[in-house]
């Protein structure tokens, strides 16, 4: 088996592999920069909760409009805003802490979404929604993901400085913005949009796989925000290619293979990375 057979042919010969690769790369380009900011803001888990919490909205849109892009996006945004609002309000006016209120809401939402799907659809739908549909993505989903990615890249470039400062010091941003945190809101909308795009590729259970995990690995290789974003992009892209190839050659499910490869990058980075890794811990002591 030549190298070209191993690496190039699967993508050259099969349209579904091409589409899967395109989808993964698109999701990486849109999501990885945001994922890096999410890590900096300590909202990796919160984003994960969010990705499950939007399920009922997405399902509702799916049941009424089928797999069409606009209703799903609008529904996801609306559910996301509603969930965030509910969680933050609960945190503010009751003794519930943020993690508890988010966990409560996302678990209930996830369960509710699953019940809704299984009452009205077939089992295939449920599997697709939970684990994604990477090998059979329609044009609509691909275009949605591409649109979201373009939008995110442009937004991150335009608001880069604001995003960094907002990560660094939320209160400072709020005080300078006359009490409003515009960048926080823009960031939130971008995250939800990318969740919707990623949701169809990797499913609700792993939609953060190409957003947050590459950033976790990247953090061990650089002490800067800009290079960190580039490194996470590179890791996401590399994982997409190698994950899909592994799944093709070994006959494994595609989405989880990609996530597993990112996971492997994370573990390797944690062990041998340049900053704050196990290696630097051992070298110091």
């Amino acid at each position: 088996m030549t190298i070209s057979e191993l690496i190039v042919l699967p993508f050259a010969d099969y349209a579904f592999m091409k589409r899967a690769l395109a989808a993964c790369l698109i999701v990486s380009i849109g999501g990885a920069p945001l994922g890096f900011f999410m890590n900096l803001r300590h909202m990796a888990l919160l984003g994960d909760a969010m990705s499950h919490a939007i399920l009922p909205g997405v399902t509702l849109a799916f049941l009424f409009f089928g797999l069409s892009v606009l209703p799903m996006t609008v529904a996801a945004l609306a559910t996301g805003l509603l969930v965030a609002l509910a969680a933050f309000t609960l945190t503010r006016i009751t003794t519930l802490k943020e993690d508890s209120s988010f966990t409560l809401i996302y678990l209930v939402c996830l369960a509710f979404g699953v019940v809704m799907i299984s009452r009205s659809g077939t089992n295939i739908d449920l599997i697709h929604i939970l684990f994604g549909n990477i090998l059979a993505l329609g044009d609509g989903s691909l275009l949605l993901a591409a649109g979201v990615a373009c939008f995110s890249v442009v937004a991150v470039c335009l608001f880069y400085r604001g995003f960094v400062i907002e990560c660094l010091d939320t209160d400072f941003m709020r005080a300078s913005g006359g009490g409003r945190n515009v960048h926080g809101m823009i960031f939130f909308v971008l995250v939800v949009l990318n969740l919707v795009a990623s949701f169809q590729v990797l499913g609700t259970l792993m939609s953060l796989g190409l957003m947050v995990l590459p950033a976790i690995a990247a953090r061990f290789w650089t002490c800067r925000v800009d290079t960190g974003i580039l490194v996470s992009l590179a890791i996401a892209a590399l994982s997409s290619v190698s994950g899909l190839l592994i799944s093709y050659h070994a006959g494994l499910p595609a989405g989880p293979s990609v996530v597993l490869v990112v996971g492997a990058f994370c573990i390797a980075s944690i062990v041998i990375g340049r900053h704050g890794s196990v290696r630097s811990y051992l070298l110091r002591s």
Partner: peptide
């Protein structure tokens, strides 16, 4: 300009 009592400035930011 406002300097809060406990600054929300994250000291783990890579800058």
């Amino acid at each position: 300009a406002y300097l809060p009592q406990a600054s929300s400035l994250r000291r783990d930011m890579p800058i």
